[in-house]
Design a protein around this nucleic acid. Structure first.
Lengths: 82, 82
DNA sequence: TCACAATATAGCACATGTGCTATAACTATT
DNA sequence: AATAGTTATAGCACATGTGCTATATTGTGA
């Protein structure tokens, strides 16, 4: 049987791009964001380079650390699916 | 070694509550949302009952199906961590 | 109460997210 | 070029998200 896994590379790419801009806006390095959030540095890099499909808890940790509302972290448009 | 896993039950609970309200606002049943998004019905239920920590791709699929911008799906306040 | 719709739970297999550690590859700045 | 700061990769073990199917529970009108 073929299991259909949901995966949204376009959306993840758009999120990654936006995250980088927000992180830099608040002058956080990946290292600082990782340290203060308790996330692994490699994890931040994997998100920003679109290597993984992170969970909500991970995103929430980032938002809490950057002290931005979720609406700001998700203030971008989902591109059309290819 | 003790691995520290990030997990944010308060945030997930707030998200779940908000998702239910948005889904009902647009008159989707769990079944309809599942069918049109390609997600499993059990998955929608697990998210809304805070049984899991969904990935961004899953959330994006929901947003696309409900035709709401991410900023609307994330228009709620992250509660303080306990 | 009965029937039906809607939601919740359960359990399995499989895919993959995450932490951790280490190392490599960039990017200034001097 | 050399150094330091930053970001990217790699690989492992472990935890868990997801699809799928089936069943149970709850909600709602007639």
């Amino acid at each position: 049987m073929e299991r259909k896994l949901i995966y949204d590379p376009e959306g993840l790419k758009a999120f990654a791009k936006h995250l980088v801009s927000v992180r830099k806006k608040y002058a956080f390095s990946q290292e600082k964001l990782a340290y203060e959030s308790g996330l692994a540095l490699s994890q931040i890099a994997r998100i920003e380079t679109v290597k993984i499909n992170p969970t909500l808890s991970t995103i929430f940790a980032i938002a809490r650390t950057l002290k931005v509302p979720l609406s700001e972290l998700f203030d971008f448009k989902l591109p059309a699916k290819k």
